[in-house]
Amino acid sequence: MANKEDLDIFNQHSQGKSKLKFEMRSYQEMVVNQIRQISEANQEFIFYKNKFAIQQRLKTALEESFGIVSEKLRKTMEENRIMDFQEQFFKEQIKFIHEARDEKEEKFEKLQQQQREKFVKQSTNTSNTEEYRRRADEIAKFIKLQDEEMEAFVSERDKLITVHEEKMAAMRQRHWQEEVELEKEFDTELSRLMEKYTPTLPGMDK
């Protein structure tokens, strides 16, 4: 390696040409610092490379998650549509039963009224005073008997309604109890599943 004296001799014999300069630099500056800069640049490159890879994996995960969420949303909407259809179907059946029941009761009341009117008409179709009085008593007895029967009918009907309402209330209570039990069962199974896939650090299971 040329030293300062060598460069001075060279410059004396190189007239008219650019003279070379002698500059002393330390090993720290020329070697160690350069290696350090290269190492830092390499580490920075690795950092950004890893960052880019993480971003790509995150992007892929988000796209997959979005696809899963979209599919779940589609299935949920389809299930809700089916549930709404089934609910509407059962509501229409119940409505049909109620309408048929109301019509049946209306016919029953009309029949009772027609029987009363028919009996009264037949009983009053006479010009004999004594016979008219006898039939008037029969009409009164008939009306009284019919009224008593209607009172008994209404009383028994009210009992039927009470029993029906109690059964409906018990059914709803069973439904809510079953739904609560199903939710508890699902919660237990989900907890077990999360425990199964919970990461365990080395030594934590001891």
Score class of each variant (00 low, 15 high):
residue 55 Q to K: 13
residue 55 Q to V: 09
residue 55 Q to N: 13
residue 56 Q to K: 14
residue 56 Q to M: 09
residue 57 R to L: 12
residue 57 R to Q: 14
residue 58 L to T: 09
residue 59 K to T: 14
residue 59 K to I: 08
residue 59 K to Q: 14
residue 59 K to R: 14
residue 59 K to A: 13
residue 59 K to H: 13
residue 60 T to I: 11
residue 62 L to W: 02
residue 64 E to I: 06
residue 66 F to A: 11
residue 67 G to S: 03
residue 69 V to A: 07
residue 69 V to Q: 06
residue 71 E to M: 02
residue 71 E to C: 00
residue 73 L to M: 09
residue 74 R to H: 08
residue 74 R to C: 07
residue 75 K to I: 15
residue 78 E to A: 07
residue 79 E to L: 08
residue 80 N to L: 15
residue 81 R to I: 08
residue 81 R to H: 14
residue 81 R to Q: 15
residue 83 M to L: 15
residue 84 D to A: 15
residue 84 D to C: 08
residue 85 F to P: 01
residue 86 Q to S: 06
residue 87 E to L: 15
residue 90 F to Q: 05
residue 90 F to L: 07
residue 91 K to R: 14
residue 92 E to R: 11
residue 93 Q to C: 10
residue 93 Q to I: 15
residue 93 Q to T: 10
residue 93 Q to H: 09
residue 94 I to E: 11
residue 94 I to M: 13
residue 94 I to G: 02
residue 95 K to C: 02
residue 96 F to R: 13
residue 97 I to Y: 10
residue 97 I to Q: 11
residue 98 H to S: 13
residue 100 A to T: 10
residue 100 A to N: 12
residue 101 R to Y: 12
residue 102 D to C: 06
residue 103 E to R: 13
residue 104 K to I: 05
residue 105 E to N: 05
residue 105 E to M: 12
residue 106 E to P: 00
residue 107 K to M: 07
residue 108 F to N: 10
residue 108 F to W: 06
residue 109 E to N: 06
residue 109 E to Y: 07
residue 109 E to H: 07
residue 109 E to C: 04
residue 112 Q to Y: 06
residue 112 Q to A: 11
residue 114 Q to F: 03
residue 114 Q to V: 01
residue 115 Q to A: 07
residue 116 R to D: 01
residue 117 E to K: 06
residue 118 K to D: 08
residue 119 F to I: 01
residue 120 V to C: 01
residue 120 V to K: 01
residue 122 Q to D: 12
residue 122 Q to N: 12
residue 123 S to P: 01
residue 124 T to K: 03
residue 125 N to K: 09
residue 129 T to R: 03
residue 129 T to V: 10
residue 130 E to V: 07
residue 131 E to I: 05
residue 133 R to N: 05
residue 134 R to T: 03
residue 134 R to V: 02
residue 134 R to A: 04
residue 136 A to R: 04
residue 137 D to G: 03
residue 137 D to Q: 08
residue 138 E to K: 00
residue 139 I to G: 02
residue 140 A to Q: 07
residue 140 A to H: 04
residue 142 F to M: 03
residue 143 I to C: 05
residue 143 I to M: 05
residue 144 K to H: 10
residue 144 K to S: 12
residue 149 E to M: 11
residue 149 E to F: 05
residue 149 E to S: 11
residue 150 M to G: 02
residue 151 E to N: 12
